[in-house]
């Protein structure tokens, strides 16, 4: 049984690590601020739960397990609020999202209507 947990934990930690790096690469590669928020979301919505679940599978039953679960719930609950606050502040500060027109070419400026 514990061997199953061990393997499952290794699998979760590996997937979480790969996703973590993916998010970091996304933050570097994406062309503008709003696209980068999406990339940062990868690490926070999937990599963090995977890593923490992988950690929980290695721990024995104790109060600490519940604390890890609380960290997990807290990260998931606050991440959208923080992303929204950043996007709203950026818009308020005059940043305009890069949008692509129908040809797929990227242009500056916003199409807020329609």
């Amino acid at each position: 049984m514990s061997l199953v947990f061990e393997w499952l934990s290794a699998l979760f930690l590996f997937a979480g690590g790969v996703l973590c790096i993916t998010g970091g690469v996304g933050i570097l590669r994406m062309p503008d601020f709003f696209a980068r928020v999406h990339a940062a979301g990868v690490t926070e919505t999937l990599a963090a739960p995977l890593l923490l679940i992988g950690l929980m599978l290695q721990m024995e039953w104790s109060m600490d397990l519940v604390k890890v679960l609380m960290i997990l719930v807290f990260i998931l609950a606050t991440n959208p609020t923080a992303s929204h606050a950043m996007a709203k502040a950026a818009l308020h500060g005059g940043q305009k999202p890069l949008v692509s027109d129908s040809d797929g070419a990227q242009t500056g400026g916003a199409s807020s209507n329609n």
């Binding site: 973590c20 601020f33 940062a40 990260i75 502040a89």
Partner: peptide, 25 residues
């Protein structure tokens, strides 16, 4: 922009939480 820097700082902070949890264990 300063928003990019703040986004990076936020992502850095989340990674710190994960690092403390994993390294602590």
């Amino acid at each position: 922009t300063e928003y990019d820097r703040m986004l990076a700082a936020n992502a850095f902070g989340t990674k710190t939480v994960l690092l403390i949890a994993l390294a602590g264990h």
